[in-house]
Design a protein around this nucleic acid. Structure first.
Lengths: 141, 141
DNA sequence: CTAAATGAAACACTTTTTGTTACAATATTG
DNA sequence: CAATATTGTAACAAAAAGTGTTTCATTTAG
């Protein structure tokens, strides 16, 4: 398991933005250019995140002219904690030093930090999972 | 308030390592060189973190020959959630894009994310605050 | 005075993250 | 079938964040 405690990238904000737009435009195919316009980033950045969301089963996309993407799940089944884990999959664990193994404390430190970080991660994900994409999206006017 | 969800730096791990060493060597002044040896990093990196811990009142240091630093508080008064906030003070809020203000969704997004991130941060800090430096330090053999 | 330590600034280096270009593949429309 | 609009992806460039290092002034003990 991994733990990310500092949101040092924009991926969670980007992913949730994409999903809200798709939820607000159900029954339509939305292009990455349109999403990029709302997010104010490059369309390729959007497509990168779309790939992750698609592979996780949250959305599906259609290639070619008149293509675009749409939600592939009910919005109330998409939980924000799961989304958080998804976009931070690779580097979830809090970063650790490589302490001196000759030091009695240093030797044990990373195992202790792992325990601490894992507990924190579980709590955080559980907390975020109390809210679904639907809850979040419905809070918009 | 701020929220950091991904631990993309080593500062929390470094700060907690320093504090555990000081707790395990109470009644002694520990040099940044000694700490750096245990952490396996440059002494200046240690002194940078020591400055933050000192200004927060957790430790005090003595200059000059035979100098060093020591805990300035009881270890059970130092809560890990507070420590987490301290080392991530500047960039705690999850990072956000700068969405297009002409988009009805984009316009509202960052306020909504702030609410979400603040709630998550509070929960995370509360969870970490269940553990003090003493609890953590005592778990070492 | 000398030695050992902190304090702090400045800069270099590395890693992470984001932005951009380019182009192949695919599907729709006429 | 040709033209067009779109996704998908790779490769690279640029920017930002984080860490490492050098340097030196200051302080204190002996």
């Amino acid at each position: 398991m991994y733990l990310c405690l500092i949101m040092s990238n924009l991926r969670f904000a980007t992913a949730i933005h994409i999903l809200v737009l798709l939820d607000k435009n159900r029954n339509e195919l939305i292009t990455s250019d349109f999403i990029a316009g709302s997010l104010n980033v490059h369309p390729v950045v959007v497509r990168r995140e779309i790939k992750v969301l698609r592979e996780a089963g949250y959305i599906e996309s259609k290639k070619g002219k008149e293509g675009g993407c749409a939600l592939a799940m009910e919005a109330n089944k998409i939980l924000l904690g799961d989304l958080y884990k998804l976009v931070n999959k690779e580097n979830m664990l809090g970063r650790k030093n490589r302490p001196n193994p000759d030091c009695a404390i240093g030797r044990q430190m990373n195992n202790k930090l792992d325990v601490l970080f894992n507990k924190a991660e579980e709590g955080l994900v559980a907390l975020l999972n109390k809210q679904s994409l639907k809850d979040f999206s419905d809070s918009f006017e």
